[in-house]
Simulated scan of single mutants.
Amino acid sequence: MFAQVGDRIVVDGIHHEGDRRAGVITAVRHADGAPPYEVRWLDDGRKSLIFPGDEAEIEHSSPTGSKV
């Protein structure tokens, strides 16, 4: 999984069916775009550092996708 600042991340809940959370990636700690990511969550505006797993999907903000 690779991302850049401005991409959206969508995480499906693993404990409660139907729970989804979306956020905007505000910082990437590695030059190649690998996790972890700092994310501002759209539902409450809070920021957190995440190491996304298989339940997460990146929606790239640019048509070229992630930078590698």
Rank of each mutant, 00 (worst) to 15 (best):
M1Y: 02
M1S: 07
F2A: 08
A3K: 11
A3P: 03
A3T: 11
A3I: 05
A3Q: 13
V5L: 02
V5Y: 03
V5H: 08
V5D: 08
G6W: 03
G6Y: 06
D7L: 07
D7V: 05
D7W: 02
R8L: 13
I9L: 04
I9C: 00
V10R: 03
V10C: 04
V10P: 00
V11P: 10
V11Q: 09
D12Y: 12
D12G: 13
G13A: 11
G13T: 06
G13Y: 03
I14D: 12
I14K: 10
I14C: 09
I14F: 08
H15T: 10
H15Y: 09
H16M: 08
H16K: 09
H16G: 04
H16N: 11
H16D: 10
E17W: 02
E17G: 10
E17D: 14
G18V: 10
D19V: 12
R20T: 14
R21G: 01
R21D: 05
A22L: 01
G23Y: 05
G23W: 05
G23I: 04
V24Y: 01
I25W: 00
I25M: 04
I25G: 02
T26K: 09
T26D: 09
T26E: 15
T26I: 14
T26V: 15
A27H: 06
A27I: 00
A27N: 05
V28A: 01
R29N: 14
R29P: 14
R29S: 15
H30Q: 15
H30G: 01
H30E: 15
H30D: 14
A31T: 13
D32W: 03
G33Y: 11
G33V: 12
A34S: 15
P35C: 07
P36A: 01
P36C: 00
P36H: 00
Y37A: 10
Y37D: 04
Y37M: 07
Y37P: 03
E38V: 13
V39S: 01
V39D: 01
R40Y: 00
R40M: 07
L42D: 14
L42S: 12
L42Q: 13
L42V: 06
D43S: 13
D43Q: 13
D44R: 02
G45L: 03
G45Y: 00
G45H: 05
R46V: 04
R46K: 08
R46T: 11
R46L: 02
K47F: 06
L49S: 08
L49E: 12
I50F: 02
F51N: 11
G53P: 07
G53V: 08
G53Y: 02
G53T: 06
D54G: 14
E55W: 01
E55G: 10
A56R: 03
A56N: 04
A56K: 00
E57R: 10
E57T: 13
E59Q: 08
H60Q: 13
H60W: 14
H60F: 15
H60G: 07
S61C: 15
S62N: 12
S62M: 12
P63D: 12
P63I: 07
P63K: 04
P63A: 11
T64A: 12
T64F: 11
T64M: 11
G65M: 11
G65D: 14
S66Y: 10
S66V: 03
S66G: 14
K67P: 01
K67I: 09
V68K: 15
